[in-house]
Amino acid sequence: MKTSISNEEFYAGLQQLPKPKYPFPDSMHPDFQQQREEYYDWIDREYIFHSKEAREKHKKHNLTDIASRGCPSLKTFAELRPLASYAANGAMMDDYWDTCTHSEMMEISKRIMLLLTGEDTNEPTDNGIFHQFWVLRQDCLTCEMPERLYKKFIKSLNEVLIGYADERVYYRTNTIPPLAVYLLIREATSGAQPFCKYVAMQKEYRQLPDDVLEHSHIQRLHTLCAMMIGIHNDIISLPKELHREGDTMNLVKVLQQEHKTSINEAYMMALELHDNYLKEFLLLQENLPSFDKWQNMVYDYVQDLGIMVAGVYAWHTNDTTRYVNGGYVDAEFITQGE
């Protein structure tokens, strides 16, 4: 693996290419700074298994801002805390277990889900990642998240974890997947589906009944959100992933392989796919099915899904530490697998 490169090599001319754009307002939860302070504190308390260098890098990334920007209209700090925990702990665990095997990731996922469902009620005393997921459940109970919304949230979170396991197969063999496989896995590993479920915690959306939230039209909008976030993450992280072996789950790399084309041409194909998803999102927003008395609230909910996508992208573009040369955190987990 090539670990020492110049800034010129790192950016490889990609900075001049066009970037995603969203027609949604950008705002931030008023308690973002308080949430950052909690984040810094639990990194030092929970992540002592990480090197000091890794912990300090994570602090600079301000990963809880993903939640503060993605769901800026949550009414209380208590409601922000579970989503911020998922956003930060999810990203950090993905970094830490980057080189584990599929079977190792599946075992990790099973333990996390036992904690999130409450089947395992024992507070973990070991690895801080597991303890943070136990805390996440307690925080959801504390903020009185409706049980039906919580079940949707952790079901989608389980799909993220399964996606993490599935992509390890490609990471460990340094193999770029076919486009069809990439699209399936990336919908999960973008991490956006749990955010889509959590958007219903804002304003009065928790009043929306299940037959609205689970309507195929709404579910398609969730998929589009997940794909837009997955692609814009791939675009932002491309310089890093061009220079690290194993970083194969990137749409630009997938399209380059699929079409036997240059990186720049593949980049433009990826951006076109992203923009087509955005066009579909806007079309579906303007052509909602009949939801009777919920019609206006559903339209506003979909608008806040768009704000969520734009907010996650705003974190990417405002962060200047995670995807820069030397800014990312390398995996420190020692795998036992082959």
Rank of each mutant, 00 (worst) to 15 (best):
E107P: 00
Q219D: 07
D41G: 11
A165Q: 03
F49W: 01
I231T: 14
V181H: 04
F10P: 02
D120A: 12
F133K: 05
Y40W: 11
N318D: 15
L83I: 15
A270P: 04
E123N: 11
R206E: 13
K21S: 15
G326S: 07
C140V: 11
T175S: 13
P124M: 04
A54Q: 03
A165N: 04
Y182I: 05
C143T: 14
E46T: 03
G230T: 06
Q34R: 14
A91L: 15
C143S: 14
D247M: 08
M268E: 06
E79A: 13
K253L: 15
Y11D: 06
I231V: 15
M105D: 08
D234M: 09
Y96M: 06
S237V: 02
G311Y: 08
E46C: 12
K253S: 11
A270L: 05
M268A: 04
I231P: 10
T76V: 02
C100V: 15
Y301K: 09
Q207W: 00
Y198I: 04
S68H: 01
P18I: 03
V212Q: 04
D319M: 06
E147Y: 11
Q16V: 03
S109W: 00
I162L: 15
L80N: 07
D300G: 05
R69S: 08
E107Y: 00
I5P: 03
L83W: 02
L208P: 09
A226Q: 01
R168F: 01
R81P: 00
D330W: 00
E204P: 03
K260G: 13
F32H: 15
R81S: 09
I235D: 06
A192C: 14
F24N: 02
I5A: 08
D275Q: 15
N287C: 10
Q16D: 08
P23L: 10
V298T: 13
R186I: 12
D26W: 03
V135L: 13
N62S: 12
L224F: 02
Q257I: 02
L251E: 02
I5D: 02
L278C: 04
L184T: 15
D120S: 14
S237N: 01
D210P: 02
F24G: 05
I236M: 10
G163L: 05
T317Y: 03
Y277V: 10
V324P: 01
M228W: 01
E332C: 12
Y205T: 05
K155W: 07
D300K: 10
W294H: 14
E245I: 09
C143K: 09
E8A: 10
T335H: 00
L179R: 08
M113Q: 09
E53S: 13
T335P: 01
G163S: 06
H243C: 06
T248A: 07
F291K: 09
F10S: 03
N7C: 00
W315Q: 10
Q303T: 15
K240G: 03
E338H: 12
N233M: 06
Y171H: 14
L179S: 04
M105F: 06
I218D: 06
H316G: 14
E144P: 02
